[in-house]
């Protein structure tokens, strides 16, 4: 497994916190990060929408709204 950099930072309340260091690559992206192209067909897109965009498209998802009945 890759070694992650760790860093110590001060939160706005003054407390010290240990956090994961930067994981992104240095430099500038040459091409757009077109993550949407990874989904190859309708089936995969709809499956992604049900999970990734579950806030709107999953019947099970209620989050902190704590109720399943529509307003």
């Amino acid at each position: 497994m890759a070694e992650y950099k760790r860093d110590e930072k001060v939160a706005f309340n003054g407390k010290k916190v240990e956090i994961l260091g930067s994981t992104f690559e240095e430099g500038k992206p040459e091409t757009p990060m077109n993550w949407r192209k990874k989904l190859r067909n309708r089936e995969e897109i709809l499956a992604y929408l049900k999970t990734g965009e579950r806030y709107w498209f999953s019947d099970e998802w209620v989050g902190s709204e704590k109720r399943k009945t529509k307003a």
């Binding site: 930072k9 001060v10 939160a11 706005f12 930067s22 690559e25």
Partner: peptide, 21 residues
């Protein structure tokens, strides 16, 4: 730019930005 986090953001926000890029 992601680099702006280190330069301008508070430590807490910078740490999250740096972790996610």
């Amino acid at each position: 730019t992601p680099e702006a986090a280190k330069l301008y953001a508070g430590d807490g926000l910078a740490s999250v930005c740096e972790a996610v890029g």
